[in-house]
């Protein structure tokens, strides 16, 4: 049985002001025990998808099953099986981590004694034992994320949904969380996580669906996706804008990205001289040129037509490429 089976799921928000098709048509399957990454820019529909799969939002169309249970008609059963850490962390700032774990364990039906034990286990697991008596208000962003993750694990869920678990964390804290998530996967938990970071999807997810504008535009393992591009990526860099413009006329299939032009070809390294000759013939000055295997970045560019910017930029993650 599949852990998650999503078939043409759809969500339309209807209000007096506007109709928003947040999720237009999303399908994917997640096998048991894998980490599945939903990669997409701001507003792609990641959170909306997660909310539907976790029974918190009504599905407008299509269907989804978690461990064989339908999210619409069997939502109670689904809720018992899943753990959820939403994007907007629902954490009570006035309580301590210990109190939060204890309360959550009690709500999941553990006896008082079991709740105390479970609390200690989980505090240890997410590395918050030392801070456990402090009010959550005083925690750093990374500590809150780990707490959030811990709280979603209280009842040992079989399927875990994490909506942007590492957004806003520094690279070190992000790694800590990645290791944590991998350990969970190795322990048999199925993880569905969303991210807007390419390297997170690349490093962490066993399989990836790229979601853009409410649609899944590509799906597969990181390697499959990269292979789908075929060939290598040649990157030309230019110092002057005029050279860049002229070069675009020569390398007609090239895609511009700032002062760079990229082109995907078979056997990249061997084709470099040929391009360089063409450009120098026209007196176009190239500042550098290189060939490389495609990255997830290139895949993203190919399937969406624009580039998802690096993880250090939180303000504007999407940069449209002019055409």
């Amino acid at each position: 049985m599949l852990a998650v089976e999503v078939k043409n799921i759809k969500k339309t928000f209807q209000s007096k002001q506007a109709t928003v098709e947040a999720v237009k048509d999303v399908s994917f399957e997640v096998r048991k025990g894998e980490i599945f990454g939903l990669l997409g820019p701001n507003g792609a529909g990641k959170s909306t998808t997660i909310l539907m799969l976790t029974t918190l939002l009504q599905v407008t169309g299509g269907s989804a099953k978690i461990l064989g249970y339908d999210v619409s008609s069997q939502d109670k059963l689904v809720r018992e099986k899943i753990g959820v850490a939403l994007q907007d962390t629902g954490i009570d700032n006035l309580l301590t981590a210990r109190e939060l774990f204890f309360t959550t364990a009690r709500l999941w039906g553990y006896s008082k004694e079991d709740s105390i034990n479970r609390t200690n286990e989980l505090l240890e697991l997410v590395g918050l034992t030392e801070a456990s008596e402090r009010r959550v208000k005083t925690y750093s962003g990374g500590m809150k994320r780990r707490l959030d993750l811990g709280l979603s694990l209280v009842h040992s869920p079989e399927v875990l949904f994490l909506d942007e678990p590492t957004t806003g964390l520094d690279p070190g804290s992000r790694r800590v969380l990645w290791e944590e998530i991998k350990r969970l996967r190795d322990g048999g938990v199925t993880v569905i996580l969303t991210t807007q970071y390419l390297e997170e999807a690349d490093e962490l997810a066993d399989r990836i669906a790229i979601i853009d504008n409410g649609l899944v535009v590509a799906e597969g393992t990181s390697d499959e996706l990269k292979a789908s591009i075929g060939g290598d990526v040649i990157t030309f860099a230019f110092d002057s804008d005029s050279d860049l413009k002229l070069a675009l006329n020569v390398i007609t299939e090239g895609v511009q990205d700032k002062n760079l032009i990229r082109i995907t070809v078979e056997d990249g390294a061997r084709k470099i001289p040929q391009y360089v000759n063409q450009l120098t013939e026209k007196n176009i000055e190239i500042s550098s040129v290189s060939a490389s295997k495609p990255t997830l970045d290139d895949v993203f560019l190919k399937v969406t037509g624009y580039r998802l910017e690096g993880s250090d930029n939180k303000e504007t993650n999407v940069e449209k490429v002019e055409d």
């Binding site: 918190l56 018992e80 899943i82 939403l86 907007d88 629902g90 709500l107 709280l151």
Partner: peptide, 16 residues
Amino acid sequence: EDIESGVFKRYQSMPI
């Protein structure tokens, strides 16, 4: 306050 902080949503995602 619980709705605003998201605690409410967390409870809704649990069988409570």
